[in-house]
């Protein structure tokens, strides 16, 4: 099974990126092979609809689990259509988040925001 995480850097000690749609990279971790790959997020520089395109990237990666601090409505629609399950990441490294997920310590992400659409976050 593959786990996807939006990250700021291409290593296991990286922080989680605060923005799902505009994260520079996604870490795709394959639990069976214990193998990590990093993919570029082609949506990061989109003027609009970044969440939709980013969700498409995650769907195409074959991930079934997404660990993210937050997620917009449209991205969530795409992810849910692909039966990808969303969990709320913790403010720690990518490795720590994978470990937390694998030991059932992460909560499902149940707050889906309506999107920021150029108005910034927080």
């Amino acid at each position: 099974m593959k786990i996807a995480i939006p990250v700021n850097e291409k290593n296991m000690q990286t922080d989680i990126c605060e923005s799902f749609g505009r994260a520079p990279y996604y870490l795709i971790y394959d639990t069976e092979k214990d193998e990590a790959t990093f993919i570029d997020n082609s949506a990061a520089t989109s003027t609009g609809g970044a969440g939709i395109k980013a969700a498409q990237v995650i769907v195409d990666s074959g991930a079934k689990i997404l660990l993210t601090p937050r997620c917009g409505e449209k991205a969530a629609n795409v992810l849910m259509a692909a039966d990808i399950k969303l969990f709320k990441s913790i403010p720690a490294t990518a490795q720590a988040n994978i470990d937390a997920y694998l030991t059932n310590k992460l909560d499902p992400l149940d707050e889906i925001h309506a999107g920021f659409h150029g108005h910034g976050g927080n």
Binding site: A43, S46, T47, G48, G49, A50, I52, K53, A55, Q56, V59, V78, A81, A82, D83
Partner: peptide, 9 residues
């Protein structure tokens, strides 16, 4: 260019 489309399943 507006990312209005996605293809899933």
């Amino acid at each position: 260019k507006f990312n209005a489309l996605a293809y899933v399943k």
